Computed example of a mutant assay.
Amino acid sequence: MPRRIGLLIFPGFQLLDAAGPVAAFEIAGRFAPGAYALQLVAAEPGLVRSSSGVAWAAEPLADGPFDTVMAAGGYGTAGAMACPRTLAWLSAEAARARRVASVCSGTYLLAEAGLLDGRAATTHWGRSQDFARRYPRIDLQPDRIFVRDGPVWTSAGITAGIDLALALVAEDLGEAVARRTAQELVVHQRRPGGQSQFSALVELGGQSGRFADLMAWMRERLHEPLGVERLADRAAMSPRHFARAFAAETGLTPAKAVERLRLEAARLRVEASAEPIDRVAETAGFGDAERMRRAFIRAFGQPPQALRRAARA
């Protein structure tokens, strides 16, 4: 019996939010024939235009039961949030489905439908501050590629929907099929849900690039003390003003950004080399291996040794 997947779209949806998971499920079905039956649905059926202008044909909001209900995201999310029929359908079908999922800002739709209260979730980093203000009862984890809390899965922006879909395939059909699907998609490797989505923002120096030079300076000195006073002096700002401005630009405190840069540098060394873990911890600025191990578990959900084994596998 195929697993029936209902994928919700709406005017202004992000095309890849839907196309990525659709492609993953479709390709997985080549390796496990009959595994999935895909159905695009919308409150206003017919041709539904994405934010790119490309339109997809969707069916009416259908009665389940669905195995999986998934909501796309995109610039049109606000309109979908204001549609009572959409929210009522999500709420009703999620109650009957085995699991419910969202891609990018589709997390807002799950939240508006009351499906995330008291649960952990994530969304695109650019919407994290707004999401946290709107939904204080949801445990937002903004530095995750995707988050699973029981039967509810949420993912970060756009391509993270592929990572989420591959994780769902792995749960349904096993790691071997998920790995073959990833290879067919020419995805270098499946990213674990705990991997950070903040790298791009940090690399750019914030939303406007204001702190790009400072970030480059920090990356060259990760093994040195990088307290807020030193960073503020480098930025020619008072510590208090710097801390506020930096958090507004990046969504991170200076201390958290330093840790993130150290984590990314250490992760690359852990996965790409045979360098001793304690040496990686020292050169990345953690000081000792135990401190780095705790930081890895917080950020990636796994200790350094587990990430090294996975990379070698």
Rank of each mutant, 00 (worst) to 15 (best):
R4N: 06
I5T: 12
I9A: 01
F10S: 02
L15E: 05
D17G: 07
A18L: 08
A19C: 05
A24Q: 03
E26M: 07
I27V: 13
G29R: 08
G34Q: 02
A35W: 01
Y36A: 07
Q39T: 15
A42K: 02
A43M: 00
R49P: 05
S50P: 00
A58N: 04
P60G: 03
G74W: 05
G74Q: 01
G76S: 04
G76P: 08
A78F: 01
A88S: 03
A92F: 00
E93W: 00
A97Q: 03
R99D: 09
S102N: 00
S105C: 02
G106N: 02
L116A: 02
A120S: 12
A121Q: 01
T123K: 01
R127F: 05
R133Q: 10
Q141L: 13
G150M: 09
V152C: 09
W153M: 02
T154V: 00
S155K: 06
G157L: 13
G157Q: 11
I158E: 08
A167V: 08
E171V: 15
A176S: 14
V177N: 14
T181N: 15
P192N: 06
G193Y: 12
F198K: 06
V202M: 13
G205N: 00
S208E: 15
G209E: 10
G209P: 08
F211I: 03
A212V: 09
A212S: 14
W217K: 05
W217M: 02
M218A: 08
R221S: 12
H223F: 14
L226C: 12
R230T: 10
M237T: 10
S238A: 14
R240K: 15
F246N: 07
A247I: 05
G251P: 06
K256M: 13
L261F: 13
L263D: 12
E264K: 09
R269C: 10
V270L: 12
A274M: 11
E275S: 10
V280S: 15
E282N: 14
D288P: 09
R293K: 13
R294Q: 13
R294H: 14
Q302I: 13
P303K: 12
P303T: 15
Q305T: 11
A311I: 15
A313K: 14
